[in-house]
C-alpha cells in the first residue's frame, strides 16, 4: 500500500447529497467573514503606502492624496533587514525541521509503541508546553552564560549571545506542543496498518519512517506552518539571549524602525508587511498538503 494510492482520492462529493440549497448562503457568510478578517490587514497595507504627515493630519480612515512604495524601500534599508532575515532563517528552518523530526518520533513512540511510561512522557512534554516563555528566561540565561562554545560556533565563546542558544530553546520549547499534537493525530491512524507492519517484521525505524510518517503528512504540514510562524515571529528568545545587534532575528529588527521616542507608524507598517511575507509564503506552499491532500478515511483501496 502506498501513499500515492491513498492520496488519489479527493473526497469528491457524490452528486446530490443534502446541503446544496444552502450553498449561496454559505458563500455569502464565508465571504463576509473573510472580508471582516482581511479589512484590518488591508487598512495596514493602505497606511503603509501613505506618508505619516498625512495620516496624522487626516486620520487613518481617509482618502489618500499620494500613494507610494517609498516606505517599503526605507523600511528595508533603514532596519538593515537583509542580515536579520538571514538570522531568522538560520534559526527557523533548522528549528522547524529538527522539532518536527524529534517530535514526530517521540509522538510515534508514545502513541504507537505502547512503551511503558509513555503516558507519563506525554504528560511531561505537554505540561512543559503550558508554561509561558517568560518563566524560564532567567535560569536559562544563567545556564547559557556558563556553557562555553568554541570560537567557530560562537564568537562570544559562550552559548549566550549565539544563535545556537536561540535555536536550542526554540526546539526544546516547541517540542512539547508538537509531541502533543502529533501523538493525538497518530492515535487516529488505523492501528491495523501498524500491526501488519509488525507481522511483516518491520523494525521501529521502518514503522516510524515508512508506515506512520507518510500518514501524518497533513498533521506535519499543518504543524510545520504553525511552527514556522511561531519561531519566525518570536522575538523574546532573540531579545534575551542575544546581545549583539547583528545577530538579532528580523522581528527584533523591526524595532530598529522605532526611535527612542518617535515612531513613524506607517514606516513600521511597511516593515511589518515585509517581515510577514515569508510566513505567508510558507503557508501557501504547505496549504496544499494539509488541506487538499491525503485523507485518512479514504484508506480503503
Amino acid at each position: 500500500m502506498t501513499v500515492s494510492a491513498v492520496r488519489a482520492r479527493r473526497p469528491a462529493r457524490p452528486g446530490g447529497p443534502p446541503g446544496r440549497r444552502g450553498r449561496s448562503g454559505v458563500h455569502a457568510f464565508l465571504l463576509a467573514v473573510s472580508l471582516a478578517f482581511l479589512a484590518p490587514l488591508l487598512l495596514a497595507v493602505y497606511a503603509s503606502l501613505r506618508p505619516y504627515e498625512e495620516t496624522a493630519r487626516d486620520g487613518y480612515f481617509s482618502l489618500p492624496s499620494r500613494l507610494s512604495l517609498d516606505y517599503y524601500r526605507q523600511a528595508f534599508t533603514d532596519s538593515g533587514m537583509g542580515r536579520h532575515f538571514l538570522n531568522s532563517l538560520l534559526i527557523t528552518v533548522p528549528g522547524v525541521l529538527i522539532t518536527l523530526f524529534l517530535a514526530s518520533f517521540t509522538a510515534f513512540a508514545v502513541a504507537r509503541l505502547r512503551l511503558r511510561g509513555s503516558l507519563v512522557l506525554l504528560m511531561v512534554f505537554t505540561a512543559g508546553n503550558l508554561l509561558p516563555q517568560q518563566v524560564i528566561v532567567t535560569p536559562l540565561y544563567v545556564l547559557f552564560n556558563k556553557v562555553p562554545l568554541p570560537y567557530r560556533m560562537s564568537d562570544s565563546l559562550m552559548l549566550y549571545d549565539s544563535l545556537w542558544a536561540v535555536l536550542a530553546v526554540q526546539v526544546a520549547f516547541q517540542l512539547g506542543f508538537c509531541v502533543f499534537v502529533l501523538a493525538n493525530f497518530m492515535r487516529t491512524l488505523p492501528r491495523e496498518i501498524l500491526e501488519a507492519a509488525i507481522v511483516d517484521g518491520a523494525g521501529v525505524w521502518t514503522r516510524y519512517r515508512h508506515v506512520t510518517l507518510p500518514l501524518c503528512r497533513p498533521a506535519l504540514a499543518a504543524l510545520g506552518t504553525l511552527q514556522f510562524t511561531w519561531m519566525y515571529n518570536d522575538f523574546l528568545w532573540g531579545l534575551v539571549f542575544l546581545s549583539t545587534g547583528d545577530k538579532l532575528p528580523v522581528t527584533s529588527a523591526l524595532n530598529n524602525l522605532r526611535g527612542q521616542f518617535f515612531t513613524d507608524y506607517n514606516l513600521l507598517a511597511a516593515g511589518s508587511v515585509i517581515v510577514a511575507l515569508p510566513t505567508v509564503v510558507v503557508f501557501l506552499l504547505l496549504q496544499r498538503h494539509f488541506i487538499a491532500g491525503l485523507t485518512l478515511g479514504a484508506n480503503k483501496g
Partner: peptide
C-alpha cells in the same frame, strides 16, 4: 559599534552587562 534597538537594549541591560558587554 554594536547597535541594538532602543527598547531591546533597555530591557536587556541586566543580562547584557553580566554577559558579554
Amino acid at each position: 559599534v554594536n547597535t541594538v534597538n532602543h527598547e531591546n537594549f533597555q530591557e536587556n541591560i541586566n543580562r547584557y552587562l553580566q554577559g558579554t558587554p
